[in-house]
Design a protein around this nucleic acid. Structure first.
Lengths: 216, 216
DNA sequence: AGAGAACCGTACCGTACGGTACGGAGAATG
DNA sequence: CATTCTCCGTACCGTACGGTACGGTTCTCT
């Protein structure tokens, strides 16, 4: 009984092939990821590739889904929290975000999706944003809501506040890394960059007595 | 006497061909920019293309240089300036930055360079940053220096301050646009987004009496 | 043990690309 | 008019890719 893999259930063998595909993509970009090359690298046949993933686009989509399945969402505490705990969580989020975005696999997949963005359909870009970013966005917005509920920060527009936080953390480093630039942190450590961004975020949104600077 | 066009001097005919090449790139991405297709679209021969630009990479580089030559640098006033003038200049910079980054040609060229980033050499990414970003960066840093000189803002690290400004203005919109997402401004106008970012920037760096929030 | 499925390795096909070669048309020069 | 130069249009070549077909092997289930 083949157990009819319900929708997108992958066998270990298939996951292994996707892993090799990611390695090829990281190593040489999209044009290094050929069906023949992958079959050779993964010790499988091209026929199996097409049987499992349909066509090349299906393979790319499967790679994105596979990678997204590895990045588990951040934990979220529902109740109120102390100020220092909230700040620690924010710093942790910033560090995680920077770590994910600067990862080799993430960069390679983003390059892949961006390269396909002009094509009609544009399935991959949407897929990447949906699968990869949704969890991150949700975790962050939950955290911001908890911070507001606990009286540590103030904002009117949650989404706008999150985007500001994102901008303070990431700045232009993501695009620069996508372009292949090295050392975008400029000597500063990832943790220092995250802490710096969170300080700036609090300067904008922290609740202070007789001070409305954060209420823009 | 062929007048030996010194280095990168292009004839009007060649500029015209590059213009058609940019159109093709914007319309269909990198794979739509084939030598045969360009020759057909521009009514020239493939032989001429290879004679003028060497090979395909030379053509891509010429396209970037050609586009960069069209984006003239921002004007810069050297002396001191009033506070409202400084703020207006900052808003103007923010609007220009958003306008450039969201332009079709800019997006297409960035996608092209990002798609080639994994290749060795990586000539295009560096070229794009060098030719396209340098002027923008310089104009902004000059503006920030003028603002500090005039006593409107305070900072210790110029480069870090500029990157914060950039992050507040652009946030994650550039990457989302590169991925093909529509409506990244979320209903808000470009000008409103720029003004919002500048307000936040002043909240972080404005010189205020008995207030050191900006001195992070 | 025997049947059947899954799978590997290889060969194969059609296509499309980058790059080159060639014939001919027009323009400038003498 | 003869010469030369630039350029267009087309044809051509080698290669490499996406996708398919097939023989042989291993594994599984009964």
């Amino acid at each position: 009984m083949p157990e009819r893999q319900s929708r997108e259930e992958l066998t270990p063998r298939q996951r292994d092939v996707l892993e090799r595909a990611l390695e090829l993509l990281v190593a040489g970009g999209e044009k290094a990821l050929t069906t023949s090359g992958l079959a050779r690298a993964a010790n499988c046949s091209k026929e199996s590739l097409y049987k499992w993933f349909g066509d090349r686009d299906g393979l790319l989509a499967a790679m994105i889904a596979h990678q997204a399945s590895k990045v588990r969402g951040f934990t979220d505490t529902g109740g109120t929290m102390r100020r220092d705990v909230f700040e620690t969580h924010l710093r942790g989020f910033a560090e995680d975000l920077l770590r994910v975005l600067s990862g080799e696999v993430s960069l390679a997949l983003n390059r892949l999706a961006i390269g396909q963005a002009s094509r009609e359909g544009n399935r991959l870009g949407a897929l990447l944003v949906e699968q990869g970013r949704r969890r991150i966005d949700q975790a962050a917005t939950r955290l911001l809501e908890a911070g507001k509920r606990s009286g540590h920060i103030h904002y009117d527009d949650l989404d706008d506040t999150y985007r500001t936080l994102y901008g303070l953390i990431v700045r232009d480093m993501h695009v620069r890394m996508l372009l292949g630039e090295k050392g975008v942190f400029g000597g500063r450590s990832l943790e220092a960059q995250a802490a710096h961004a969170i300080r700036q975020f609090f300067a904008l949104y922290e609740v202070r007595e007789k001070e409305t600077a954060g209420r823009l």
